[in-house]
Structure formats: structure tokens, C-alpha cells
């Protein structure tokens, strides 16, 4: 644990002052957010809104976990979607073939994902920058090919068919729309809270240091490879959680979940929302899904509309929305003080 200790020593300055306070604040925000989301069905009969929040949970967990790599560690992964797919397939297959209680399948899927992520990560995180991106992409395509080829086990291109069984556990029946909705919200909030704790922990500050100057971090006695591998596996776990929520939503798993377009969407969400704030990817998720759902209602030429919006963000704002807003506020406060 030397790298953690070293990281802690370095990170003491920003963390110690009010670290506990901030943690309480985060937990409080999480509890309020969950209470608001969970009480939503009391006020609206719109099933589409609940569907929307469920999908936001799936994509939000996935995109935020990618930001642990991209934003906090500077590891640009083009293949993060493989863990989204692994989560969906792992969970679906365990439920279909073994018929165990849902929490068991949940934990087992996370365990399998952790092992696979550790193996792939051990190979990938040695590489730098664009080469890391390429090799993660290659692994993703390899996993996608395997899902397609191994049809007797995975169902091939038609995916896991026949629905995912959802036996009731602890009084929770995920076949019920409201139950599924509340469970998705709970997973989202818990996942976000856990990721927030990771990001604000000494380990999180170690990651930032690696991002800004890996040579310096390693000079200070941090085992960079181990820290990168750890965050790679952690991010994979949260991505798999997102995949499981998606599997529950569509009651199946499809090879598209492990295709590189899913990774592309997560990157896109991150760029849309912003990578330098914790909630940026969440904002991006809501923005992209809302945009997608709205535009496809009105035109089948959504590519043009989406493309123009992307250009607006990439060339106009030059950063994600939340990053932009945060900077704008910071600037306004500065000029306000100056006055």
C-alpha cells in the first residue's frame, strides 16, 4: 500500500481540511437526490419519464465510470463499453442459466468483471495515450467478436432471448416497473456516491497526480502501474453496474452492448457534459438521451441534427456544458469581487 500512503501524504493538503465535512455533504446530497427521484412516481403517471430515468441510470453509471479513467487519470479508453456489455451478459446469463437470487447474480457479475478487467487492464495500462486507446478498442472488438462467434452460449447476434427472469427478493420485484425504477435510482445514487468517494479520496488525488505528471508521481514512490490498474478495475465495475441496469430494462442482452459504438457514446457523453467536474458525465447523459429521444421523434435524419449539436460543443463551447457553466460562474464571481 505504499503508493496509497505516498499519495495520502501528498494529498493531505487538499483533502484534510473539511474532508469529513465534504463527505457528509456528499452523502446528504445523495440522500436528497434519491428521495426526490424515488418519490417521482407519486407525482407523475408518465411511464416514459420513469423509463428515461432508468436509462439515465444505466448510461450515467457507465459514463461517469469512464470519467474516472479519462478525466481523473488521463487514461483515454476507447473500449470501456466492453465492461458495459460484460455486465449485461454476465448478469443475464447467470439469471437465465443458474436461476440464483438477483443479489447473488449481481455480486457474481461484478466479481467476474473484476477478474476480466484485471487481466485486460494488466496488459493495457502499460501503454500510453493513444496506444492505450487503441489496445482497449482492440480488446473490445475481440470480446464483441467472441460474443458473436460463441452463439451456443451467448445467443450470437440475436442476443440473450426469452427475457431475463426476475424472481422477487426481499420484497423487491424487479418485474414491476416502479420497483425497477426505484432500484435503478438506488444503484445510480449509490454508484455515484461511491465514485465520488473514490475521486475525493487520497487515491483519487494520486490519480490526478498521475494524470498531470506520471514521471513525478513515480519519482515520489507511487506505483503508477498499480494505481492505474486499480482504477481501471474500479471503473469496469461501475460500467458493469450500468450494463446490468440496461439488461434489466430491456430484459435481455445484445451484442450491440459490447460494440465500440457504445464506448463512443460514453466518450461523447463525457465531452458533452464535461470531464473536469464530477457530475459532468451525468449532465452529458441527460443531455444526450434527451436530445436523442426528442430528435428521433421528429426526423429520421437525426444524424445531421446530432452532428451539428456536436460541432456546436466541440467548436463553439470547446468544452463540456458543465465545465463551461462552472468556468462561467467562476469568471463572474471574479469580476463581481473585482467590482
Amino acid at each position: 500500500m505504499t503508493e496509497l500512503e505516498a499519495g495520502r501524504a501528498r494529498a493531505l493538503v487538499p483533502v484534510s481540511s473539511g474532508a469529513a465535512l465534504q463527505r457528509y455533504r456528499d452523502v446528504l446530497i445523495a440522500v436528497i437526490a434519491f428521495a426526490v427521484l424515488a418519490s417521482l412516481p407519486l407525482f407523475t403517471g408518465s411511464k416514459a419519464l420513469l423509463d428515461f430515468v432508468i436509462r439515465c441510470s444505466a448510461y450515467g453509471l457507465f459514463a461517469t465510470s469512464l470519467n474516472l479513467l479519462v478525466g481523473y487519470t488521463g487514461l483515454t479508453s476507447f473500449g470501456h463499453g466492453m465492461f458495459f456489455g460484460l455486465g449485461a451478459y454476465g448478469f443475464g446469463l447467470i439469471m437465465q442459466k443458474l436461476g440464483v437470487p438477483i443479489p447473488v447474480a449481481f455480486v457474481a457479475t461484478l466479481a467476474i468483471t473484476a477478474v476480466i478487467a484485471a487481466i485486460i487492464g494488466a496488459i493495457c495500462v502499460r501503454l500510453k495515450e493513444i496506444y492505450f486507446a487503441f489496445v482497449t478498442l482492440a480488446f473490445q472488438m475481440l470480446i464483441h467478436s467472441t460474443i458473436l462467434s460463441w452463439a451456443s452460449f451467448t445467443g450470437g447476434d440475436q442476443g440473450l432471448r426469452g427475457g431475463i427472469p426476475r424472481p422477487t427478493f426481499l420484497g423487491i420485484n424487479l418485474a414491476n416497473h416502479i420497483h425497477l425504477y426505484v432500484a435503478s435510482c438506488a444503484l445510480l445514487i449509490l454508484g455515484l456516491l461511491a465514485m465520488r468517494q473514490i475521486a475525493q479520496s487520497p487515491f483519487g488525488y494520486t490519480l490526478r497526480m498521475i494524470r498531470d505528471n506520471a514521471a513525478r508521481a513515480s519519482f515520489l514512490g507511487i506505483d503508477v502501474w498499480r494505481a492505474k490498474l486499480t482504477v481501471f478495475v474500479l471503473a469496469a465495475l461501475f460500467a458493469a453496474m450500468g450494463g446490468m441496469v440496461m439488461a434489466l430494462f430491456v430484459s435481455g442482452a445484445y451484442p450491440e452492448f459490447a460494440y465500440w459504438t457504445i464506448s463512443g457514446e460514453a466518450i461523447f457523453i463525457n465531452m458533452l457534459g464535461g470531464v473536469s467536474t464530477f457530475l459532468g458525465p451525468m449532465v452529458g447523459t441527460v443531455l444526450l438521451l434527451l436530445l436523442n429521444d426528442t430528435v428521433t421523434r421528429f426526423t429520421e435524419y437525426h444524424g445531421i441534427v446530432l452532428g451539428v449539436v456536436i460541432l456546436f460543443f466541440a467548436l463553439g463551447l470547446r468544452k463540456g456544458l458543465l465545465d463551461f457553466v462552472a468556468e462561467w460562474f467562476a469568471r463572474r464571481r471574479k469580476t463581481g469581487e473585482g467590482r
Binding site: 479519462v70 483515454t76 495515450e129 493513444i130 486507446a133 463512443g264 466518450i267 461523447f268 463525457n270 465531452m271 444524424g303 445531421i304 446530432l306 452532428g307 451539428v308 456536436i310 460541432l311 460543443f313 466541440a314 467548436l315 470547446r318
Partner: peptide, 13 residues
């Protein structure tokens, strides 16, 4: 790199 990727992706669409 991601920003460049995004511009290219927009044009693919």
C-alpha cells in the same frame, strides 16, 4: 484528442 474525435464523429453522422 477526444475533441478532434468528436468533430470527426459529427461529420460521419
Amino acid at each position: 484528442v477526444l475533441m478532434q474525435l468528436l468533430v470527426c464523429y459529427a461529420f460521419v453522422l
